[in-house]
Design a protein around this nucleic acid. Sequence first.
DNA 1: CGTCTGACGGTAA
DNA 2: ATTACCGCCAGAC
Length: 106
Amino acid sequence: MNDPDDLRRQRVLATIDAIPRGRLATYGGVALEAGLPGRARYVARVLRELPANHTLPWHRVVGAGGHLRTSGPSATLQARLLRAEGIPVRAGRLDLANHVWPRAGE
DNA sequence: CGTCTGACGGTAA
DNA sequence: ATTACCGCCAGAC
């Protein structure tokens, strides 16, 4: 298990795992941090296929512009988890500008 | 190998 | 604000 695919995936997972509590990251941002510029969709795919027993802060990953891209029960859960971290959620929208990660200097 | 899909992102109307 | 479309690319078939 050391294919380029697995490594690429590991980097995405590691990046998401590094998102600080109370902060947000976009799919595209995670992809960029993982060294995969322009692969936002790949990040989404990785999250979608996570096993049920993962411990990653998946809820901190949102769409560009601060939109929740999840739907159904996941969206409800995500909103709840985010609010629990002090990030207000209104109508599936978030104040991305004030919580986005990473940012200059960090 | 050809097509379709999508937890994206951006632009146009 | 909402809808439609396009570019992108890894999987599923």
